[in-house]
């Protein structure tokens, strides 16, 4: 599993969902958690963290947000070499095949469908870690 020193960015336009995800991450032992309420406000945080040499090790984003959707933020991240390998999970009420395919094509690490419980989020994170640690070994 990701080390407890991993720095998270949680993005959702609803503070309630950010609280739920943060609570779950805290229960898993993670304390380095920053928040943004939209893809548009998240992007400068991602850039600033990288510039400071303290990049996010895991991004968890809602899909459906008013100014910049999570899928667009994902595409923007994957377009930059420096963010290509950052684990990026989409959390969304969208669970239709066309959305899943779009997210997979854009390079999502995994996908959590709302409503979900903490066990599901943990399980998805473990799956992302399995892929991430394998890629890191190869690189």
């Amino acid at each position: 599993m990701f080390p407890t020193t991993t720095k998270f960015l949680v993005i959702d336009d609803f503070a309630t969902m950010r609280k739920i995800i943060k609570k779950t991450l805290n229960e898993l032992g993670y304390t380095l958690i920053e928040e943004a309420d939209d893809g548009a406000t998240a992007w400068p945080l991602i850039e600033a963290a990288h510039a400071k040499g303290e990049p996010y090790g895991f991004i968890i984003s809602d899909w459906n947000m008013p100014k910049m959707a999570g899928i667009d933020l994902l595409k923007q991240c994957r377009a930059e070499d420096k963010y290509k390998g950052v684990p990026f999970m989409l959390v969304t009420a969208e669970s239709e095949q066309k959305q899943i395919l779009e997210a997979a094509k854009a390079g999502v690490s995994d996908y959590v469908v709302k409503p979900f419980n903490s066990a599901t989020l943990k399980q998805k994170m473990e799956k992302v870690w399995a892929k991430f640690s394998q890629t890191a070994k190869v690189a």
Partner: peptide, 16 residues
């Protein structure tokens, strides 16, 4: 905010 998120999830689930 919580009402908004609940509405979002309930509609998303029914819509699917």
């Amino acid at each position: 905010d919580a009402v908004g998120e609940l509405t979002n999830m309930i509609y998303g689930s029914a819509k699917t």
